[in-house]
Nucleic acid binder design. Sequence first.
DNA 1: TTGTAAGCGTTATCAT
DNA 2: ATGATAACGCTTACAA
Lengths: 296, 296
Amino acid sequence: MVEEAIRELNYIPNSAARILASSASHIVAVIIPSLSATVYAQEVHHIVRVLEERSFSVVIGHSDYSEIREQRLVQSFLERRPDGFILTGTQHTDLTRQLLKNSGVPVVETFDGDNAAMDMSVGFSNFEAGRKVAELFRSRGLTRIAYVGGRSEQDFRSNARFEGLSARLAEDGLTPVARIELTLPMPAGDGVRGLDRVLATDPLTQAIFFSADTLAISALLECNRRGLRVPEQLAICGFGNYDFADAIVPSLTTVAVPFEEVGVLAANAILARLDGTAQGSSRKVIPLQLLRRASA
Amino acid sequence: MVEEAIRELNYIPNSAARILASSASHIVAVIIPSLSATVYAQEVHHIVRVLEERSFSVVIGHSDYSEIREQRLVQSFLERRPDGFILTGTQHTDLTRQLLKNSGVPVVETFDGDNAAMDMSVGFSNFEAGRKVAELFRSRGLTRIAYVGGRSEQDFRSNARFEGLSARLAEDGLTPVARIELTLPMPAGDGVRGLDRVLATDPLTQAIFFSADTLAISALLECNRRGLRVPEQLAICGFGNYDFADAIVPSLTTVAVPFEEVGVLAANAILARLDGTAQGSSRKVIPLQLLRRASA
DNA sequence: TTGTAAGCGTTATCAT
DNA sequence: ATGATAACGCTTACAA
C-alpha cells in the first residue's frame, strides 16, 4: 500500500503498451522540406503549439524537397502508427499515396491550394499569388518582368507562382523576360545571384518577382549598394512577408504567406477528424494578401 | 507463399510492439523554447538532419521559455521511452532533473556552456559573449553602454550575456547605463521598443548590445530612419548572425551563434552514448566569434 | 462497481 | 539454424 503510493509517485506509463493495446498513438507526423526555411519552421511552430495543447506529440521529418526522401519518411513514420500526417505540397510518389491511403490515417497536405489533395488540404493558391504580383507590375505599366525561384523539378509551388505570373502577363501579350532557377535550399545570399542572372539575361529588366522574401531582401539591399534605384529602375516583389520586409528601405512589397493559419488549420483538421467532428475530404484555400509597399 | 510475398509487400512493422519488446524506441525528444526563434529552428534542423540519417525519429516540444511547461513536456515525452533527450539551457525544475535522472535516458543540455549540466552539454559561454562585446565597445572608447534582452526570470542565457557585459565594464569602473527587459517571445519589432526604452533611460547612450540580431536589425534600421548615425552616434551589436546581418547598411556587428555545430554535436552526443562509443558526462564548449562589422 | 483474462505485434529466450 | 513460447505493459471486453 505504501509501496503502491511510492510506485504511484514515480509511475510513468509506457505509451508503447498503450499504443499497442489501444491503437491510438497520439502522434502526428509532420513532413516539411526543411526547418531552416522560415515559412516551414513557423508553420510547424503553430502545428506543435496546437497539438501540444491536446497532448499529441509531433514527430518531424525533412523531405529536403525530394519526393523520394519524403516517401522514405512516410514509410518510416507509418511504423509509429501516427494518428495523422501533415505533408507539404501535393506532389508525392505513387507509393507515398498508396501507403498513406492503405493506412487510413488522416492526411493534410499544406501550402498548395491549386491541386487536388489525397485527403484534406490547407493552403493557398500559388498560381493566384503569381497573378496578383503580375497584376501589380502591370498596373505600374511595367513590361519587362522576370522571375527568380527554385528549380522547377524541385519547387512545385514556386512553379505555380511562375505560371500565375506568366498567365497574367500573357493576357497583355507579354512573356517573362527571364526565369531563373536556383537549386534548393536557397540561402538568402542567392538573391544576389538571382539578381545578377536576371540582369545578365536582360539588362533592361524592370521588375523581378522573387519566390521568397529572403532572396528579395538580399537582392534589394544589393541594389541599394549598387545605386540601382528601387523601384524606379527595378521593381522588386517578394513572397512571404518575413521579418524586416517592412523595415528595410525601401520597404518590400510582398505576398503575405499565412503560415500561422496554415499550421493551425492543418492541426485542427487532423484533430477534427480524430474527434469525429469532421469526416471526408476537405479543402481549405486561404485568400492571399499582396502587401503593396515601396519596392514595387 | 505467394500470399506471404504479397503480405510482405505491404508489411509495415509496428514500432509500438518493437519498443515494448526491445525497449529501444529510436526516438529522441527535443525541447526548445520555440520554433519561431531562428536559432532554435536552425538547431533543430541539424538535429533532425543528423538523427534522420540514423533512422531516429525526433519528437519536438515547445517550453515557451517556461520551466514548468518544460517539465510537463518531459513527463509526457518520458512515456514514449525516448532513447535521448535534448534540452535547451541548464535551468530546469527539480522534478525535471529527478525524472530524467531516474529514467536513465541520455540527456544533452544545449546553448549554455556556463553552468553545470546534469548529464552531457553542448553549448558556448553566454557570459563570454557579453564580455567580448563589452571589450569591443571599450576598445572604441565607449562608456555609456546599454543592454536589451529578455526578461531575467525567463531568459537565463540572456542574463549570462548581461553579466559578462557588466563584468567587463566593471573592470573599467563602469556600469551599464540601462538594462531593458522584454517579455519573451520577442518579435523583431521589439528592437525598436528596446531602443526607445534605452534612450528614454539615458539619451546619451553610446552603445547597445541586443540579445538577438532580430532586435538589433530592427533597431538599426529604425536609427537609419531617424537619422541617428550608426555607429558614430550609437553603436549597435547583435547576437546570432542571422540572415541579412551583413547585408544591411551599416552591416551589423554581432556574435556568431554556432547553432549548426550545437545541433550536430548534441545529436552526436546522444548517438555516441547509445552506440556505447562514449560514456559518462561530457561538456563541449564551442568558442564564440565576434564578427566586427560596421555597426559597432 | 471491481476484478480477471485475453490480446495487441514484436523481441528474446530457450529448446530442439 | 530453426521454431515454439514467454514476456513487454497496457486496454478492453467480459464476468462476477
